[in-house]
């Protein structure tokens, strides 16, 4: 399972409406709920928040990769949120985060989980790509950018 197989319009939201970290995590989990990808909203949110409490997954250059493991999912799930305005996510460089890749995996699929996270790291190394995604007008354009079509 490649990251690209997880990318579809229903798990992309642009723009995110949240204005702070707690809300954006809820909004990202809600994307999965609305897309029919998860049933237990609370369990998924708890897994994501538990990891965030240890240290923010807000990286440099406006990227955040919240992630967690929970038995509430049976396969790897991705939600992608874009906040062109930027949201304070307590990132490493203290700059607002704009691109949120949230990954949730079951505990028995650590391999695919790690590989998907590694793919995200490679993907966001291209600043031009990140700029293009942040400037996308809708979910369809985001999916096309990621799939390179």
């Amino acid at each position: 399972m490649s990251l690209i197989d997880l990318v579809q319009e229903k798990i992309v939201k642009i723009p995110l409406v949240s204005t702070d970290k707690a809300d954006v995590l809820r909004e990202l989990v809600q994307i999965l709920k609305d897309a029919g990808e998860i049933e237990d909203y609370d369990a998924v949110l708890r897994a994501i928040c538990e990891r965030e409490e240890k240290l923010s997954t807000g990286l440099e250059s406006g990227i955040a990769v919240p992630h967690g493991k929970t038995e509430a999912v049976s396969t790897l799930k991705l939600a992608l949120g874009i906040a062109p305005q930027g949201i304070d996510f307590a990132s490493i460089d203290r700059k607002p985060s704009q691109l949120f890749f949230m990954l949730v995996a079951p505990p028995n699929q650590s391999g695919p989980h790690v590989e998907a996270l590694a793919e995200i790291v490679k993907l966001v190394q291209s600043k031009a790509f990140c700029r293009a995604v942040t400037a996308a007008k809708d979910a369809h354009e985001v999916v096309e950018l990621i799939k390179g079509e």
Binding site: M1, S2, L3, I4, D5, E119, K122, L123, Q125, S126, F129, I146, K147, G148
Partner: peptide
């Protein structure tokens, strides 16, 4: 392999 392949080398 992944059903849809990106042209992006990173993927």
């Amino acid at each position: 392999l992944a059903r849809i392949r990106s042209r992006r080398d990173e993927l």
